[in-house]
């Protein structure tokens, strides 16, 4: 359970987060989306007690982060900063964390195995690729076996293979019933994994919705070509469906293809083409986040 209530944070003259409220239910995977600079990282850092809000508050599992008894065992996080000292080995880095948090050393080897870093664990972090660093960060987040995970742009800088690995991994975590809040500026990165989305832009909430709703928004549009376009457009309008002429007998219709086809048959309109103009999730996302993202 993560709650953000009227969170406001200003850095100098920049209003990074502006009266933002949303919540993440237990056991769900929520995508936290917005273009770069929308205030995602600031919000996540406020949830984790790293950024001090100017107004409003954040709670994890009903408490402020600092009030959690064993935060490391309750909330795991990946943030967009270097995870470890470059001169320390991956294993020693995790040992430092385990020691400070009171986690057993055996668990260090477990999480190294889990993220596929056992072989590289003895090497110094400065020799790691970006993908290995992200794996190490994920190992650090999972070290305390937390129920709740906060991941800030975990796919950033990963190659396609790494992104796929991450996606499978997130799905595995979700399958275990963990609560995950994962940020991204690319909807497609998380679309296959998340149940809910929270979309912000310029520090404000644009929409909080189930992924199904987002998909529905993307699905309902059709392109029609007809020698009788003008008449069909008015028929569609009478049926309460928005239809716009694209010229040359082509219409852009805001309804699923099945509905458009039924109307055409019922009214004896000849169609030369009927195709689903499937707006991608990315289009919906861009539309919601407005001018700046385009």
């Amino acid at each position: 359970m993560i709650e953000v209530e009227s969170l406001t944070k200003r850095f100098g003259a920049t209003l990074a987060v502006d009266d933002l409220s949303f919540s993440v239910s237990p056991g769900t995977v929520t995508g936290f989306l917005g273009p770069n600079g929308a205030g995602k990282s600031t919000t996540l850092r406020a949830i984790l007690g790293l950024v001090i809000p100017d107004a409003g508050r954040t709670r994890v599992l009903g408490k402020s982060y600092a009030e959690l008894g064993h935060p490391f065992q309750q909330v795991g996080a990946i943030l967009e900063t270097a995870e470890a000292h470059p001169g320390r080995s991956g294993r020693n880095h995790l040992r430092v964390l385990a020691t400070a948090a009171g986690v057993s050393r055996a668990r260090v080897d477990d999480v190294l195995e889990l993220v596929g870093m056992t072989e590289a664990a003895g090497r110094r972090v400065k020799s790691y690729s970006l993908g290995m660093r992200q794996r190490l960060a994920l190992a650090g987040a999972l070290l305390g076996d937390p129920e709740t995970l906060v991941l800030d742009e975990p796919a950033n800088g990963l190659d396609p293979q790494g992104i796929r690995w991450l996606r499978d991994f997130l799905r595995m975590l979700a399958g275990e019933g963990r609560t995950v809040l994962v940020s991204s500026h690319v909807l497609a990165e998380v679309a296959q994994t998340v149940d809910h989305v929270v979309i912000i832009h310029k520090g404000r909430l644009v929409r909080q919705a189930a992924m199904r709703e987002m998909e529905a928004m993307a699905a309902g549009a059709a392109v029609v070509r007809s020698p009788d376009a003008a008449r069909f457009a008015s028929l569609l309008n009478e049926a309460g469906i928005d239809a716009q002429s694209m010229g040359d007998g082509e219409l852009s219709v805001a309804a699923p293809t099945a509905r458009v086809g039924e109307l055409a048959a019922a009214n004896g309109v000849v169609l030369h083409e009927l195709t689903a103009a499937r707006a991608t999730l990315e289009d919906v996302f861009l539309e919601l986040t407005g001018d700046e993202a385009q």
């Binding site: 007690g49 790293l50 959690l68 935060p71 490391f72 996080a77 900063t81 995870e83 000292h85 400070a100």
Partner: peptide, 18 residues
């Protein structure tokens, strides 16, 4: 200072928010 220089202070404060 090394914790600020390499950004590891983030993880340190996550483990120990007090």
């Amino acid at each position: 200072t090394v914790e600020w220089r390499h950004g590891t202070i983030t993880r340190t404060f996550l483990v120990t928010p007090r």
